[in-house]
């Protein structure tokens, strides 16, 4: 299996995927740093700005940045991995791999591991970069920042599990469309849940929960954002990146199970199909 991991890692490097993504991410972090620096200067020059108020602004800015990273990671997860299984089947390159003394599950799991590792590195670089920028400029480190990166990575892995399962029986294009549609549904569902919880509509909250079960990506994002927000922000009623309805820790367990089950089904389908 480790040969497949290495092979896939080399493919990602050769195709310059990771480098491109990291370069773009670096551009983003730099832009964020510049923007944040200006805003921060502005804020501290204002009189009457208390420390906790300042913290709210800083945290708000940080959450916005993380949201962009979150979106980038979802794009990255889907776009890099949609074709990794179906593409190899279509192009027949899989035939010379699957006739070697490796089991089918090793091929699939090896590939997944490589992509999951790449995503983790990507999230660590971008998320870590963002936290570092904020730390350097505003001397502020939010609580649980490591956990936040962890959850964002987990979110990427959930998406990867979806595209890997899809890749075992769908064409590359269908698989990509499906992944983005699921993400869109979860995204909208998340907002419905948020607004519903503000307006105390139980039906809306339930819709949100159902969509989170379908794809727990948005729920993980909200959990990640919630983790690093200080208590003061959490109590604010309206906040565009707010976490009015925070998914329970059970959602995290669910996400873990979600990955395991999807991959298991993927292995089952892939192990049985004709190549």
């Amino acid at each position: 299996m480790w040969v497949i991991v290495r092979l896939t890692a080399r493919e990602v490097q050769r195709r310059k995927l990771l480098w491109m993504a990291l370069a773009l991410g670096f551009v983003f972090v730099t832009l964020f740093a510049v923007g944040f620096h200006c805003v921060h200067q502005e804020l501290i020059s204002q009189v009457g700005m208390g420390r906790s108020e300042l913290q709210i602004f800083v945290n708000f800015f940080l959450t916005a940045g993380l949201y962009v990273i979150n979106f980038l990671s979802v794009m990255m997860a889907v776009l890099t991995s949609v074709g990794t299984v179906s593409g190899e089947i279509d192009s027949h390159t899989i035939q010379s791999l699957a006739t070697k003394p490796v089991r089918r599950w090793e091929i699939l799991l090896g590939k997944w591991t490589a992509y999951a590792g790449m995503l983790a590195i990507y999230m660590a670089c971008l998320g870590g970069g963002l936290f570092l920028v904020v730390h350097l400029i505003a001397d502020y480190t939010p609580q649980n920042w490591l956990g936040t990166i962890g959850f964002l990575t987990l979110e990427g892995w959930v998406i990867l599990a979806v595209t890997f399962l899809g890749g075992t029986f769908l064409s590359t294009l269908t698989n990509g469309v499906l992944a983005f549609m699921l993400y869109g549904i979860a995204f909208v569902g998340g907002w419905v849940e948020q607004i519903g919880s503000l307006m105390q509509s139980e039906a809306a909250v339930n819709i949100g929960i159902v969509t989170s079960l379908l794809l727990p990506s948005e729920a993980l994002w909200r959990r990640a954002a919630h983790l690093m927000q200080p208590a003061l922000i959490r109590s604010l009623p309206s906040n565009p990146f707010g976490t009015a309805s925070v998914p329970s820790p059970a959602m995290v367990v669910y996400a873990g199970l979600y990955i395991v089950v999807l991959l298991a089904v993927g292995l089952w389908v892939f192990g049985r199909r004709d190549l």
Binding site: L7, E11, R14, H92, T93, Q95, T99, K100, P101, R103
Partner: peptide, 21 residues
């Protein structure tokens, strides 16, 4: 049986390999 494939050589009809190698 996967282990036995270590002793089999195969050239597929549609030979396509990872071309970035």
């Amino acid at each position: 049986d996967t282990a036995i494939r270590a002793r089999i050589g195969f050239l597929p009809e549609h030979f396509r390999f990872h071309e970035w190698l």
